[in-house]
């Protein structure tokens, strides 16, 4: 475990793709709680999510976890504390929902004793019991999205990244998802990238708005005045 408070800091993050600069010096800090990441298309939200998820690295600048700069030496320790739901989630269609969640649990390093209980709890939390024996390839997009969330939360992550988490999820499950996010936000950093602002109403305590790769605003949530969709 890296020493220090549960804080994820970004210092002058830049990301360049050829001639295009997707992130132009983002500096901010995330603390436990639900934070909304907003902005129009092309603002750099996905790029920032990818950098935090350690899928891509910044061209310059740094990411600090608990005060320590993330490098190749300590990145795996950060990854063990990370839960991630990508925008387009695709598991293996041949695995059943139960098998897939167990699979991810084991990849996240859960012990055999721990695994069973956590898998059952995740399945229950997201009402996936009817689909435990259903192959992923036969699941609806909404069910897949719930599987994605279940796998992300299985190891009690300290940092939870949700990229468009409510896409394809029906209203009942959206409410359930809200409860899960609220619960996770009490102890973890939850960063939610979304266009559906109503899902975060009363849930997110902070909104980070990106525009053209820059930090346009970073303030306590006030979705009524926000205008991104």
């Amino acid at each position: 475990m890296i020493a220090g408070d549960t804080a994820l800091d970004f210092v002058e993050l830049r990301k360049r793709f050829g001639q295009h600069e997707a992130l132009k010096g983002i500096s901010t800090s995330l603390r436990p709680g639900v934070t909304a990441l907003l902005g129009p298309n092309g603002a750099g939200k996905s790029t920032l999510m990818h950098i935090i998820a350690t899928i891509s690295s910044p061209t310059s600048g740094e990411v600090r976890w608990r005060g320590e700069r993330l490098t190749s030496k300590n990145i795996d320790r950060f990854r063990r504390e990370l839960g991630y739901v990508p925008q387009q989630f695709a598991g293996y269609p041949q695995l059943t929902v139960g098998e897939f969640i167990r699979y991810i649990g084991r990849l996240r390093g859960l012990s055999s004793g721990d695994l069973r209980g956590r898998v059952e709890r995740s399945i229950e939390s997201f009402a996936l019991q009817p689909f435990v024996r259903t192959r992923m390839g036969a699941c609806s997009p909404g069910t897949l999205q719930r599987v994605a969330l279940a796998q992300a939360l299985i190891a009690d992550p300290t940092v939870l990244l949700l990229d468009e988490p409510t896409a394809g999820v029906d209203p009942n499950n959206r409410n359930a998802l809200g409860d899960v996010m609220r619960d996770a936000g009490k102890r973890a950093i939850v960063l939610v990238c979304t266009h559906i602002l109503s899902d975060l109403d009363g849930l997110a305590t902070r909104a980070i708005v990106l525009e053209d790769g820059r930090l346009a605003s970073d303030s306590p949530t006030n979705f009524e005045s926000a205008n991104y969709g």
Binding site: A53, R79, A90
Partner: peptide
């Protein structure tokens, strides 16, 4: 191709 690799890349598995 299907994007799952991106997800796997975020795991602490070499």
């Amino acid at each position: 191709r299907n994007g799952f690799g991106r997800f796997l890349a975020a795991l602490a598995v070499p």
